[in-house]
Simulated assay, not measured.
Amino acid sequence: MIKLENIRKSFGEKVVLQDVTAEMEAGKTNLIIGASGSGKTVLMKCMVGLVKPDSGRVLYNGQDFTAMNDKEKKGIRQEIGMLFQGSALFDSMTVEQNVMFPLDMFSMGNYKEKQKRVAECLDRVNLSDAAKKFPAEISGGMKKRVGIARAIVLNPKYLFCDEPNSGLDPQTSLVIDKLISELTKEFNITTVINTHDMNTVMESGDHIIYMYQGLKQWEGTNKEIVFAKDEKLNDFIFASEFLRDAKEMRQMEMFQDQNWRSKLPANKKEDPGTGA
């Protein structure tokens, strides 16, 4: 797992993160949500080492990532897969070459071994037929799947996704959400997703952190979020009348489910500070 302990970060006089403590669990889709300027992007950058927190610790399976030198951090980074918002594929490389790029950087295997691993990953994201194509020759959804194949080619323990559904139509977004969720569970990956997509929140949110003005305002699951009493969270998630109606329908469906009702904590109280 990845554990955050009292993460604080400021840029000049602007406080971006205030004592954020949380755990990102293995085998689960961990979401960070929040409005623009809430601190969620900076929080993810602190987790992967692109930004150093002013105080606090980021622990990877108990190892203090923030205290490591560059050489020590390299070992952790080799266990990290990244899916970028714009896919970030190399236009001059084929799909196959793009997926092979991390293997060329970090793997000691020969070309045939690398080619075999690339083929396995492309097959897993249903892109075997696109191996020889260039990024300009494939759709936006296919580019995202190439990005996922590249992110998992090194068998990462940790997968970070920045707005994986950005620019995609709703149907393609569902495909990407399902694929990431399946890979997370299949390989027991600690997946962290930065997203504004409410479908991702409701369908894939095994563990959700809602950021508000640098604070962890609420924490829970996609089922618990339907019954959350936190006003700021509800204003963000269920902003439109349509979504408020959808929330009420989901609540009714879940109350009719006897199995779910038995799991709902009867006396769970929300913390005034975090809404959790």
Rank of each mutant, 00 (worst) to 15 (best):
K232N: 12
N234D: 03
G214K: 07
G220K: 04
K216R: 15
Y212V: 09
A246D: 03
D257Q: 14
E219R: 03
E219Y: 05
Q213V: 02
D235G: 09
E224C: 05
L233D: 10
R244H: 04
Y210H: 04
K232T: 07
D235L: 12
L215W: 10
M211G: 08
E224R: 06
K216E: 12
Q213M: 11
L243P: 06
K223D: 06
E241P: 02
Q251I: 03
M211I: 09
F238S: 07
D206C: 05
E231C: 03
Y210I: 02
D245G: 01
M254D: 07
E248T: 03
N199Q: 12
F242R: 00
E253N: 08
H207A: 01
Y210W: 07
E231V: 09
Q213L: 10
E224D: 12
N199C: 07
R244G: 00
D230T: 08
M249Y: 13
M198N: 11
N234Q: 10
Q251E: 07
K229D: 02
G214N: 06
S240T: 09
D245L: 03
M254P: 06
M249A: 13
M254R: 07
N259M: 14
R250P: 06
R250Q: 11
I237C: 04
Q213H: 11
D230W: 10
S240I: 01
E224M: 12
A228N: 07
H207S: 05
A228Y: 04
Q256W: 15
F227I: 02
N259Y: 12
G205K: 04
E241T: 00
I225Y: 01
K216Y: 08
F227V: 02
A246P: 00
A239V: 10
R244F: 02
Q256N: 15
F238M: 12
H207R: 12
E253W: 14
N222R: 13
K247F: 05
F238V: 09
E248S: 03
V201M: 12
K232M: 14
L215M: 13
I225M: 08
F242Y: 11
F242T: 00
M252P: 04
M202I: 04
R250N: 08
I208M: 01
L215S: 09
D245N: 05
G220V: 01
Y212C: 13
L233C: 13
A246Q: 10
D235N: 15
M252L: 15
